[in-house]
Design a protein around this nucleic acid. Sequence first.
DNA 1: CTAAGATGTTACCTGCGGTAACTAGGAGTC
DNA 2: GACTCCTAGTTACCGCAGGTAACATCTTAG
Lengths: 222, 222
Amino acid sequence: MDTTQRTDQERSADRRRRELLEAADRVVLRDGPGASMNAIAAEAGITKPILYRHFGDKGGLYAALGQRHTDALLDSLRAALDAPAERRERVEATLDTYLAAIEARPQVYRFLMHPAEGAHPGDQPGEQPADQGFDVGKHSAPLLRRMGEELGKVIEERLDLGPDSQRLARVWGHGIVGMMHAAGDWWLGERPCTRQELVRSLADLLWGRLAAAGDKVGSPGF
Amino acid sequence: MDTTQRTDQERSADRRRRELLEAADRVVLRDGPGASMNAIAAEAGITKPILYRHFGDKGGLYAALGQRHTDALLDSLRAALDAPAERRERVEATLDTYLAAIEARPQVYRFLMHPAEGAHPGDQPGEQPADQGFDVGKHSAPLLRRMGEELGKVIEERLDLGPDSQRLARVWGHGIVGMMHAAGDWWLGERPCTRQELVRSLADLLWGRLAAAGDKVGSPGF
DNA sequence: CTAAGATGTTACCTGCGGTAACTAGGAGTC
DNA sequence: GACTCCTAGTTACCGCAGGTAACATCTTAG
């Protein structure tokens, strides 16, 4: 049967692919993002062209690598978001899960947050410089986008937001993820407080303490 | 007097520097981030080594270039934040100012948000692979950091947040900036609604509507 | 007139992403 | 067994980027 054959070959290819991904993982963990294809190939004990045969180009490898971690992180987040508890507790648990993840493996986290780098793959020197302004967008890392989308869906599923609920939920999804990301990034760099404190502060922000706070006594400008 | 001399030279150097920066600006506006040093030099009518004499390396040029725009944007934001109006109005005005800016010049915005790229400038092949885990942090764009810090200061100056006010203010500063950035980036890519709608949705989020919303009828999981 | 010092050049090095062309080693068919 | 095909693997190269060394030139001070 050639099904057996093909299955064997497929399995072999998949195994190689996974081995290569694990090697790449090790290199990224060691060298951070920007790890070179040469380095990855060397770590895997082979040479560059094989990587290119398996993943097309660097973007392909990085996408495959990123998806593994992204999937794993998203699973953790979903678990925290689905825990049977009060909303505030779930929010705090989710924030804490994310922060614990980036704290545990900062290199991986840095790697995931990197955009795709070069944006002119098929850039031919045509004489028309007309592309000035569009073609932008989606500069952010895919992880952020995916987290934002997923959170938006969860919010829309579970909360009653009246009319415009869909728009509101999506905006909030991306907004909250961005808040979490930026605060986490800053926190990771400066370590100004404990994780617990950071989580509570962010949850307080989401809980409307900004709106509820009173003006300071000598507050300028009205 | 050699003061006059030096002043003349300094002025000349500064003028060149500004000219070069403006040329670089044009190139970045046209080619987006990742504009090459060759391209910038060509646009300025000179060759690479001059750029390197003026700015040291690519990071230096990009830093100088970034600071101009960052300063300009921060000025606009401060103005919106200082307007004589209710807090909610000021918050909305600030969000709108930021979004209008990134909407008006997406290429510049993309450029500003890019980190410093390469992280191994003086990488010597020492046999000690011991740097596994630290040295991370500050992966984010300087613009985000600066905005976060500034907003944190403003919040701490003006709001009465009880004890922990300093930590709370800084966390919120970075968190709100991140929210604004992520939502703006997503919005710029997909244009799912008007700017007004986005601004109101984000302000609603900051105003605690997330906490105030009721559960949906068939809400799963408790 | 000469010497210094900035301004600018050409020509080069390194390292990266990416590819073309070639070489084993099995499986399948006659 | 010889012939082919396919896959994993190699070496050697291209183009382009960032970055630098060494040389040329103009201006200005002494």
